[in-house]
Amino acid sequence: MALTREERETFLAEPHIAAFAVDGEPGRAPLSVPIWYQYAPGGDVWIMTGLDSRKNRRIRAAGRFSLMVDRVEPTIRYVSVEGPVLDTVPATEKDLRELAARYLPAEKVDGYVAFASANHGEQVIVTMRPERWVSSDLGSV
């Protein structure tokens, strides 16, 4: 059964790890990898990635991407969202801290931010406007 707008937006706002997908290079399948994201109901989605990463190069070429999040308990539920890129801006430590705090226990955030700042290189925030939604709750099987 399809989710209501409120159900799908609430579900997407939960801290799931998303399956990110973007058009691949000619002769290659779409690029699909797990990724952290940020979203608040009614707003835009943003991800953080390396400035020189394959993800960012493919996003720039395609101008859009999709995210899919799912769970299997207490019911089998998923939400997929796709849309155009609105903006790409340099990421700040504040952005990194916000994203890390969404996924990690509070006592791990400082260590992760220090590690990521030292090892991940220049990062960007890519913002996407949700344009197409696909969602379902299959209940418990």
Rank of each mutant, 00 (worst) to 15 (best):
G24Q: 09
L31G: 01
F11C: 06
R8H: 09
A19F: 09
A21L: 06
G42H: 03
I17P: 04
A21H: 02
V33L: 15
E9Y: 00
R28Q: 14
G24M: 02
F20W: 02
Y37K: 12
E25H: 12
A29N: 10
P30H: 04
W36I: 05
R28Y: 13
P26V: 06
L12W: 08
H16S: 00
G42I: 02
E14W: 06
H16N: 04
Y39T: 12
A40P: 09
L31W: 04
R28K: 15
S32P: 05
I35V: 15
A21V: 09
A29T: 14
I35Y: 03
I35C: 06
S32N: 12
F20M: 12
Y37F: 14
G27S: 06
Y37P: 05
I17M: 06
E9L: 09
S32R: 10
E9I: 07
A21G: 00
E14G: 15
P30T: 01
A13W: 11
T10N: 10
V22H: 05
A40C: 07
E25F: 11
F11W: 04
Y37C: 15
P34E: 10
A19D: 06
A40Q: 14
G27E: 00
Y39Q: 13
A13S: 15
L31E: 05
P30R: 00
P41I: 02
Y39H: 15
W36T: 03
F20C: 06
P41R: 04
L31A: 13
D23Q: 14
P15S: 07
H16R: 13
P41A: 05
A18C: 12
G27A: 07
E9G: 02
R28D: 11
P41T: 05
D23P: 00
E9T: 01
E25N: 11
Y39N: 10
G24K: 10
A19Y: 07
L31Q: 11
P26Q: 06
A40D: 15
F11G: 00
E14M: 15
P15E: 03
I35M: 07
F11Q: 08
E25Y: 13
A29P: 00
H16Y: 14
E25A: 07
P26H: 13
F20E: 00
A29I: 06
L31V: 09
V22D: 02
P34F: 12
F11I: 11
A19T: 12
G42N: 04
L31S: 10
Y37S: 10
D23F: 04
V33T: 08
H16V: 12
G24E: 00
A19M: 05
P15L: 05
T10M: 14
A21E: 01
E9R: 05
D23L: 08
A18F: 10
F11H: 08
T10E: 11
G42P: 01
P41G: 07
G27C: 04
L12A: 01
P15K: 09
R8V: 05
I17Y: 13
E25R: 12
T10L: 14
A40T: 14
A29V: 11
P41W: 04
A19S: 13
W36V: 11
F20N: 02
A13N: 13
